[in-house]
């Protein structure tokens, strides 16, 4: 299921390239890096979004969007490219999160935050939609 050969299939390479281009040119992300380590079930992308993808609702009132040095601003995000036609299971999600490096994942609202990834779903018309997936019970942000 998570053999290293998976990461080299042309299908996955295409998927990663599509999402990478989308993030770089459309969503204006910076510091984009593609990780195709065999420890991951498939190639992943990390990068820095122009705006934080998640702000803890408890710190939403103190968060200052102008402050370029706030901890929320410097959070690099992991991006998981998937095809719309794929089917996932809880087991695959869990393996995905467990393969991500352990340790310090940054802070959110003064609290050390857990793991999260950005799910980039690619449709066959090359539309890409992004969904934040948190590992564990995480309060929804304030919209």
């Amino acid at each position: 299921m998570t053999t290293p050969t998976d990461t080299t299939t042309p299908h996955l390479q295409d998927l990663v390239q599509t999402v990478h281009k989308n993030l770089k040119h459309l969503a204006d992300w910076s510091s984009l890096v593609i990780h195709s380590s065999p420890s991951f079930p498939r190639p992943l992308i990390t990068g820095l979004p122009p705006d934080p993808v998640y702000i803890d609702p408890d710190s939403a009132s103190t968060y200052n969007a102008e402050d370029k040095n706030s901890p929320e601003r410097s959070q690099h995000e992991w991006v998981l490219p998937v095809d719309l036609r794929e089917k996932w299971t809880l087991r695959k999600w869990a393996q995905m999160f467990d393969s991500l490096p352990e340790g310090y994942w940054g802070e959110s609202g003064g609290k050390v935050r857990g793991k999260r990834i950005l799910l980039a779903v690619v449709s066959d018309d090359s539309t890409v939609v992004h969904y934040v997936v948190h590992d564990g019970i995480v309060k929804p942000r304030q919209n």
């Binding site: 969503a27 979004p49 705006d51 993808v53 998640y54 809880l90 999600w93 869990a94 950005l118 799910l119 939609v129 992004h130 969904y131 934040v132 997936v133 948190h134 590992d135 564990g136 019970i137 995480v138 929804p140 942000r141």
Partner: peptide
């Protein structure tokens, strides 16, 4: 195991 999904916002 639980996973919480929200729209990415962009």
């Amino acid at each position: 195991r639980t996973f919480c999904v929200e729209w990415g916002g962009f």
